[in-house]
Amino acid sequence: MTVSTNLGPWVNRRGVFDRHLKNDVFRDAKLASAQRWGMSPEGQHIELGIAEQNLFLMLSALGLAHDLYGARLLPIGTVYDPFVNRGLDALIYACYQDARFMLVSTPSGLTLAPEGGQHQSINTPLLGMAQDRLASFEPAYADELAILMRWGFEHMQKPDGSAVWLRLSTRGLEQPQRTLDPAAVVAGGHWMVPRAGCPHRHRLSGAGGAGGARRLRGAAGGGAGGGAAGDHLAGPAACRVAGGAAQGAVGLRRPLLGRGIAGAAGAGAAIVSVIDGHPAAHAWLGAVRGQRVVPLGVDRFGQSGDIPDLYREYGLDVDAILDACAQALLG
């Protein structure tokens, strides 16, 4: 699990925890390994293997250290995204107890294409939106991730803070050179392609996560049917926008509604959303200002295949996005 979640460099730098000194069994057996598995009380990596309930129980205990022992810890747990469901009961009660931790789930979504439905997550974005005391994000780019991790470590320590969940992907993306507004990223959305001053009834395309960002960048560049004129917004935090929408009725976080996803293109604009998860994670956006929404996502367990074929099968490829934009405009 350490290898599949790309934690090899962390293990080599920080060491594996054990209450006693233990030799690296791979080196003792003269077996090649990219990781150094020597264990000691100074190690900061705890290897649990495939045991999600144990992971969340441990995150809960470590995340309550400030109450139990008077010392704040910042625990980080990594897990395959679909298997969050295996430990969901323990995760819910960890949040209920106000434990503070950072959960990183990867790979996520349909993009883990060759392994079939058992490793392709669908409902996890909805869990992140619904769970109290858990701030959920789905960044696509490294600069977004850096902002959210910095914010998350601070948020975990605040009296009114919470646990943090980062839903990531192992799918590579070209990293843009840009300067982001951290407040906009944390609030729930920032412009991938700046607003172009389109007419009143134009479309606003929003992407969540690496899968959505990759498809949306392809559509913006033309894809098979030419350029997709309109505004393109990255939404790394659907639950944050949802929280802003819910609170907006009583006057809180109105700047988010004024410049964020729902209000970005005016009340008459249509929204096309793309996420490598259940489309309901974005479908609510139209309820904020009565806008038409065409949500794209995955609403059934995935077939096994290569990524282009599966994106085409489940309506997440460039052509599907362009068709959705046309549908949104035609009303």
Rank of each mutant, 00 (worst) to 15 (best):
K30W: 06
G302I: 01
S205P: 02
P125T: 06
Y69A: 13
A262M: 15
A142T: 06
G87D: 01
V318I: 00
I275N: 00
Y93W: 09
G277Y: 10
A32C: 11
I321A: 01
N6D: 15
A210L: 06
A34N: 10
L74E: 14
G226D: 07
W165A: 01
Q303K: 03
R300Y: 03
M192Q: 09
L252S: 12
A94C: 10
A280Q: 06
D299L: 09
A262C: 15
Q97D: 14
Q327R: 11
A51H: 12
Q35Y: 08
R36P: 01
H278F: 00
G161F: 07
F101E: 10
T2G: 12
Q44V: 04
Q291E: 13
D143I: 03
D276R: 05
A183W: 05
R312K: 00
A270P: 07
A237T: 06
D18G: 02
V16H: 01
P125S: 08
T170C: 13
T170R: 13
A220W: 01
L257R: 07
G38K: 00
M149I: 07
P114T: 05
L330A: 12
A219L: 02
K30G: 05
V3Y: 00
Y311C: 04
A224L: 09
Y314V: 03
V288T: 05
K158I: 00
W151P: 00
Y96K: 08
G212Q: 00
H119G: 08
R13H: 04
L64T: 10
A210T: 13
S304Q: 09
A281L: 04
G49H: 04
R201G: 13
G235V: 14
G161S: 09
I271C: 08
A267L: 13
H66T: 08
Q53I: 09
